[in-house]
Structures are given as C-alpha cells and as structure tokens.
C-alpha cells in the first residue's frame, strides 16, 4: 500500500509523518511518532483509551485515519503537562487516587480536559455522561469523578 505524507501539529509542535491510507491516527501516534500514551483498548471506539483532540474536538484516535490529520492540530496526553508542572487534572488524579492500573487514565484525562475547556463547572451527571465513552474497569469511576470535580474547582478558582 502506497504511503502518504502528512503534515500536522501535535501538542503544538509541527509534525510530519508518512502513513498507509488505512492506518489509524492511533497507530500513527503510537508506532510512528513514539507517542504511546494513547492506548488501544478496543480499536472500535467503544472504550475511549485512545482519546485525543483533533482541532479541539475530542475523538477516538482509533476511529480517525492518519491521513485525515493533514493540516490538523492534535493534542495527546503527552502534551497535557506544561514544562515541569502537572496539569491540575493530572495532580488531582494522583491526589484523589483516581487511577488503579492506569491504562484508561490518559484517555480519561484528555476527555476530562476537553469537558472543562467547554464547561468549567459540570454537574456530576454531566461529567458521568461526558465520560461514558471512557471505560475504566478498576475504580468503579467514583474517585475519577471526585478528582475531576476537584480539579474543576481548583481551575475555577485559579
């Protein structure tokens, strides 16, 4: 299969890659760009572990072709912390023990950030529905919800 060159921006930096036309953005990020923070839990958009934003929109990178990223801005978990400081969501996940095995954590953090960017003060119900596409099998979600609420509070007061 003939590969295609793609120019894009990943976490604010210009990035170029080549990929096969049927290669997913998730495979490109993981196998070609060395960004293994996005995980493949299902490959069918049912678990959210591969969540990234594409032009600011939360998507499953397993449901995006790499070639579709031409000219787009992609943000991944690797871009969430700035410099040597964690994002408030990341710190809240550690402080509130919102992860156990941690495999869903990158996707949930990316998804939660997309929500708080849009709605800084979501209700618990809004939060639970927004995150319904991010499966977590360890925590029962409770501490995840508490952590996002705590981070949202902190970000609102900052």
């Amino acid at each position: 299969m003939k590969t295609v060159p793609v120019s894009t921006t990943i976490n604010g930096d210009a990035a170029e890659f080549i990929c096969a036309p049927d290669e997913t953005l998730l495979d490109v990020l993981r196998n070609r760009m060395g960004l293994t923070g996005a995980k493949e839990g299902c490959g069918t958009g049912d678990c959210g572990a591969c969540s990234v934003t594409l032009d600011g929109r939360l998507v499953c990178s397993c449901l995006v072709l790499g070639v579709e990223a031409e000219g787009a801005e992609i943000a991944t978990i690797e871009g969430l912390a700035t410099g040597d400081g964690l994002h408030p969501l990341q710190q809240a996940f550690i402080d509130h023990a919102a992860l156990q095995c941690g495999i869903c954590t990158p996707g949930i953090l990316v998804a939660a950030k997309a929500l708080l960017d849009k709605n800084p003060d979501p209700s618990e119900t809004e939060l639970r529905y927004w995150l319904a596409g991010n499966l977590c099998r360890c925590t029962g979600y409770d501490k995840i919800i508490r952590a996002v609420q705590a981070a949202a509070r902190q970000m609102r007061s900052a």
Binding site: K39, E40, L86, G102
Partner: peptide
C-alpha cells in the same frame, strides 16, 4: 501519593504494547 502516579498521568508508563 503513589510512586508510579506521575508516569501514569503523563502517558509515560510503559504497558504491554
């Protein structure tokens, strides 16, 4: 705080794949 926390919230932790 768990010692592997930062690795797991930044995407640095290395899993099977």
């Amino acid at each position: 705080a768990r010692p592997d926390g930062i690795d797991k919230v930044t995407g640095r932790a290395l899993y099977g794949a």
